[in-house]
Design a protein around this nucleic acid. Structure first.
Lengths: 194, 194
DNA sequence: GTCTATACGCGGATAGAC
DNA sequence: GTCTATCCGCGTATAGAC
């Protein structure tokens, strides 16, 4: 359950407390308005400082976007590492499933936008660490079968988890109920014989 | 298969050919850059006219966004109507499934953004016709059971279809293959005993 | 580390000629 | 129906005082 800490032990975040407040505010605003629709003025107002002060912490807006993306990436990496620690492929897949559901529910208000915002997508397309991480994730999910019969269900499953977490049909469910239901159905889906 | 035409028979589109070209260009740009990230200048350049000319066709940028949304809405409405024409609930659900898969694949390059762009989401939240349409759609999908056991799978299924269509794992599949696979798996998912 | 002030371009939007 | 020209505000970003 407790994932072994990666290479860097209790790695102190590379960001100062003030930067972390800025990142938190940015995530919030990106979720509501999208990246392009969020100005540095809005972020500055949310943090309670001026634009110039934000520019002292981050040289450009892109750096803020990158910081937001990397925060999520770290969590995703932990999930993949935990899954890869399992020797049995089925067990690995189940660990990944649990972690992905946890993450999706924990971030249910932002998953949709963060994963689909064009600016984020563009940024991550050119970001090798992310691409490598996703390749590892898919490998656990799909197994070594690169065929269509493995990839389509995997795509649907991963889309179902993140998409359902922010779906209006279930917006009234509390986190625990949503998590339990998502996980149960996802598991059933995985175990249905092809 | 051929859906009976709605109230207005061969309803001529409310948009002029030039407006339609503008809408097409806008969809394209929205897909790549998001709504906020798309300027009227970009749209004008894509159409090959000046900004002022775009403003002759649409009074505001919001009107363009609305026109884009409504184009999709019409197709979705056709799908729901076709499904509602079935008397047996299971048959209705299957018709809806087929239509939704068709739409998702047909628009696989834009589904993700159009459904998740913050500006679109905001716009549609305040757009009663859309809300009513979605209520009808969910009713066909979930049935009359408003319980959790019906809604969570429905949310996952609808997210799986639209999300998988634009998923990187299946980006190499051609439309026909993707459509067939999505539909097959979606059907199996629906028929798995709760 | 945060401020005020400012530069400069691009955003949406309009007026009026052709 | 499309153009040129223009308005104005806000966007990112920087300089320099405190």
């Amino acid at each position: 359950m407790t994932a072994a800490e990666p290479l860097t032990p209790p790695r102190s975040s590379p960001y100062s407390p003030t930067q972390l407040r800025t990142i938190a505010a940015a995530v919030d605003l990106f979720t509501t308005h999208g990246v392009s629709g969020t100005s540095l003025q809005m972020i500055a107002d949310a943090v309670g400082v001026t634009k110039a002060s934000i520019y002292y912490q981050f040289k450009t807006k892109d750096e803020i976007v990158l910081a937001v993306a990397e925060a999520d990436l770290t969590q995703l990496e932990d999930a993949v590492e935990a899954a890869e620690a399992e020797t049995d492929p089925a067990a690995a897949r189940d660990v990944l499933l649990v972690r992905l559901v946890d993450l999706a529910v924990e971030h249910r208000h932002m998953v949709g936008i963060i994963q689909n915002d064009p600016v984020m997508v563009r940024l991550l397309e050119d970001h090798q660490p992310f691409q490598l991480l996703m390749a590892r994730l898919y490998r656990v999910l799909v197994g070594d079968d690169p065929g269509v019969d493995g990839r389509v269900p995997a795509a649907m499953l991963s889309a179902a988890i993140s998409g359902a977490a922010s779906h209006p049909l279930v917006s009234d469910l509390d986190d625990d109920a949503l998590r339990a239901n998502l996980l149960g159905i996802a598991r059933r889906f995985l175990h249905v014989p092809g």
